[in-house]
Simulated assay, not measured.
Amino acid sequence: MSDSKALAIACALVASTALVSCSQQSSSSHDTATTASMSSEQPSSSTPATTGQTRAPQESTIPESSTIGTTTSTAPDPAACNAQKTNPLLGTDHLSVAGGRGETITFSVSEDHFDPCAPLSWSVIAGGVGSGNSLREGVVFFIDGEPVNSPMPLMEEKVLSVTPLGDASARVTYSILTGPRAAEETVQGSATFTADPAGGLAISDNSLPAVANEAGIQVDVSTL
């Protein structure tokens, strides 16, 4: 083979090889560009696209008042209710008589319905002023375990009954002297006592006769 013919064949091979190589590179570049274009235009359904976009925050479905990880309880507030608290009447046997006369009544608890966590509870006490004095009976009320002094507890000849009227109300029926004790003449009278959210007790359905003011005494429980 002549040198000129060999040279021509070599040039043809070189040209052919370059064409193939350029063609392959062009095809590869085109495929890469196409793939990149598809990736940017059609993001994967499993991976959200974030480039160039800001996703609006989703609104919470939890109410603002909700507290995650806690539960609502209806149990009494430990700060307001001490279930271990005992009846303060059991810690003394004397109470001052209202009226500023300096007298005291010596008493004992005859019925104990004290409940430190109840909206309204009570105890029936029996006692007299001075030695040998005839006994009177009265009801001391408690609101959430605290003794109520407004109005002051009333002591009459006898407490006939205390009837609960719901959680925060009770009706008391008294036996009331209408004359000298020796005559043993009495009349009944009742009143309903209800725990007042503003403090103290509200009195309603009061059928106590006027003589109850003369026959009875009131005691001060503010020092309990």
Rank of each mutant, 00 (worst) to 15 (best):
A170P: 05
K85Y: 05
L165K: 08
Q53T: 12
S39M: 14
D115C: 06
D93T: 10
V109A: 02
C22Y: 06
S39V: 03
K158N: 09
S204E: 12
I143R: 12
T72V: 11
A210S: 15
N206Y: 05
A79M: 01
G100I: 01
A36T: 08
S207N: 09
I143P: 02
P151T: 00
A212E: 03
A79D: 13
S190R: 10
A8Q: 10
R136T: 05
V20K: 10
A79R: 08
R136Y: 09
R181K: 11
T61I: 03
P43Q: 15
E103D: 14
W122Y: 14
S121A: 12
P76E: 12
T34I: 01
V139M: 04
V172A: 11
M1E: 10
L120S: 02
A170T: 02
G100W: 05
T104W: 10
L160N: 13
V148I: 12
H113K: 15
S21D: 03
K5H: 06
G100N: 07
T86I: 08
E184S: 11
N149Q: 08
F107I: 05
S23V: 00
T61K: 12
I68V: 09
S108E: 14
S175K: 10
T192M: 08
M38R: 07
P63E: 12
V129Y: 05
G69V: 00
D115P: 05
A183N: 11
T74Y: 06
V97F: 00
I176M: 10
S131G: 06
M155L: 14
V221Y: 04
V159S: 06
F107D: 02
E214W: 04
L177E: 09
S16C: 13
H113M: 07
Q25C: 06
R136P: 09
L165H: 07
L7V: 03
H113C: 06
A83G: 09
E185F: 07
H30N: 13
S66L: 07
P88I: 03
I62M: 13
A202P: 02
L201K: 04
D3A: 15
I68C: 03
A118E: 05
S175M: 10
S45Y: 08
S16P: 07
A212N: 08
A79H: 00
Q218I: 11
A10G: 02
F107Y: 14
V219L: 00
T178W: 11
S108I: 05
P63A: 15
T194W: 03
L95T: 01
T47W: 01
P164C: 11
T17N: 05
P119V: 07
A49Y: 11
I125L: 02
D3M: 12
T51Q: 10
T192P: 06
